[in-house]
Amino acid sequence: MSKRQQGFTLVEVLVASVILFSVLAVVSLVYRGAITASVKATQHLKINAEARMLIVKIEQSILELSTSEINKTQQKGQVNGIEYIWKAQVIDFRSAPKKFDVDLGTFIVPPRKYKLWRVTLNLEHGGVSKELTFHQLGWNNA
């Protein structure tokens, strides 16, 4: 008479357990990677949003500084949890192009009043940092 086996053997249960835990480990690693990428993307978005506001403030500061004799400046601070530091330096100081005066028959050279600034803005939030470099034109209305 043949005896029929009921249930699983210990080896079958162990093999199934190893496969199950391997799949769970791989899924958890993928999920963890997705969470990490999501957090970093959120931090980058926050930095970019604040960078726009800071650039507007920097442009206003540069326009004010262009009326003075200052050729180099920096400022640092924190806004909405984002630390920033910006540095600006004049890289060119020129006048408008020469104009020909028909009455005098000569070229008139206007006074120097246009300053071209190189600005570097460093932002940091939650271990993510970003550096932006741009040029800003300022002038003296005097």
Rank of each mutant, 00 (worst) to 15 (best):
E83S: 14
D101C: 01
A34F: 07
V30D: 00
V30C: 02
S95R: 07
V39Y: 03
G138L: 03
T106G: 00
V90D: 06
S68V: 05
P111I: 09
L116K: 02
E64V: 12
D103I: 10
S61Y: 11
Y84C: 01
L63R: 09
K87M: 02
L29I: 03
R52P: 01
N80D: 12
R112D: 08
L29D: 07
N71R: 12
L20E: 01
V30K: 02
I85R: 13
G77K: 11
V30Q: 08
F21S: 02
A25H: 08
A16N: 00
S129P: 06
L29K: 07
K115E: 01
K130R: 14
I62N: 02
K76Y: 09
L121D: 04
T36M: 08
F8W: 06
L10E: 06
T9A: 08
N140I: 04
D92W: 05
L121V: 03
K72I: 13
S22V: 04
P97I: 04
S28I: 04
E83G: 11
G127C: 06
T133C: 07
R94M: 11
T36K: 14
M53L: 14
A49C: 02
V23G: 05
T42G: 14
S28E: 08
L137R: 00
G81M: 09
V39R: 12
D101T: 05
K115I: 00
V15N: 01
A16I: 04
T9I: 10
E12P: 00
Q136H: 07
Q78F: 11
R4W: 10
T9Q: 09
G138F: 00
S38F: 06
E131H: 06
V90S: 05
A41H: 10
V15E: 04
K87D: 01
I55N: 03
L45N: 12
R32L: 14
D103Y: 09
G105V: 03
S66L: 03
D92L: 04
S17L: 12
A41T: 12
W117H: 01
K87F: 04
Q5F: 15
K3I: 12
D103G: 07
T120F: 08
V56W: 09
M1W: 12
K72C: 11
D101W: 05
L10W: 10
K113M: 14
S66C: 01
E64P: 06
Y31Q: 13
H135W: 10
A41K: 10
I108N: 03
P97W: 05
Y114N: 05
F21K: 07
I70N: 11
S22P: 03
Q75V: 13
Q75G: 11
N80P: 10
V26N: 06
V15F: 08
A49K: 09
L20R: 05
L104Q: 05
L20P: 03
Y84P: 02
E124D: 13
I19E: 03
S2E: 13
H44G: 08
N71L: 11
A96M: 13
A37S: 09
A142S: 15
L104V: 02
S68D: 08
Y114D: 08
D92R: 01
T67M: 10
N80L: 15
V79E: 13
K40M: 13
F8M: 03
Q6F: 15
D101A: 00
H135A: 11
A16D: 00
V56L: 11
T42R: 15
N122Y: 08
H125F: 14
K72Q: 15
F100C: 05
K76Q: 15
V13I: 13
L123T: 04
V56R: 11
V13P: 04
